[in-house]
Amino acid sequence: MAKRYRYELADIIQHHMETRDLSTRKLGLSAGIDPATLSRIMNGKRKATLDHLHKLATCLDIPPADLLKAAGYPLYGGDRDDTAADPSAEKIRQMLTAADLPPSDFSRQQVDAHLKTYEAYSRTEEGHHTILQQFGTKITNTGSGGPYIDQLKEWFVRYKQQKGSAKELAAIASALLYFIVTLDVIPDYLMPVGYLDDVFVVQLITKSLTLAK
């Protein structure tokens, strides 16, 4: 199964190399990856690290989430026979540690604290307008898709139309603000792992809304 994802990754990289007339050597040097290492990644003989994916995404101007998914990292749910649909806090800590990125102490408690703050902020006029005015821009800037993005879009429509109880709408608003605000538990600029906590939040709120029914 893992090898299939590496082949998908190679296909994406190869496509962008061809459109830019880049050889493996040129791409490696441009991205700051040893060409021999990049060649092994392309041939499925070595798994790409988060650092490799970050450099390739930046160099080729590819949404980082696309490369993460192709490389088999657990970001989104779907019909895959792995645990991607339920990335735990421990898995996220492992990925951050592997990429030598903070915060390696990522926890559910940190996320809950942020959500509580955003829920309170959403009840203010400024918070309400932030959701309505900035959500679309953030979606565009994210440059990726998948079930968690689709869920956020669905919640935005629901929030905008005020469909749901006050408790449900407050939970949805906290998730939307968590996505919109750049500096959350894992800052969004820490590519390509910046949105792992956003996926985590979507799953937490989805479960809470289900339990509330």
Rank of each mutant, 00 (worst) to 15 (best):
M1P: 02
K3F: 00
R6W: 07
A10C: 09
L22V: 07
T24H: 07
R25K: 10
R25A: 10
G28W: 14
G32E: 09
I33T: 06
D34V: 15
T37P: 01
M42K: 14
K45W: 07
R46C: 06
A48D: 07
T49D: 08
L53I: 11
K55E: 06
L56V: 13
A57F: 05
L60R: 01
A65S: 11
L68T: 03
A70Q: 09
A71T: 13
Y76F: 00
Y76E: 15
G77T: 02
G78L: 08
D82G: 10
T83C: 07
A84L: 09
L96F: 05
L96I: 13
L96W: 03
A99D: 11
P102G: 05
P103H: 12
S107P: 11
S107W: 04
D112T: 09
T130Y: 00
Q133V: 04
Q133N: 06
F135T: 10
T140A: 07
N141E: 12
G145N: 09
I149Q: 13
E154Y: 12
Y159R: 06
K160N: 06
Q161N: 05
A166D: 04
E168M: 11
A173H: 03
A173R: 00
S174K: 01
L176W: 02
L176G: 00
D184K: 15
D188G: 11
Y195L: 15
Y195P: 00
I205S: 01
I205T: 07
T206F: 00
L209T: 05
L211H: 12
L211V: 02
L211E: 14
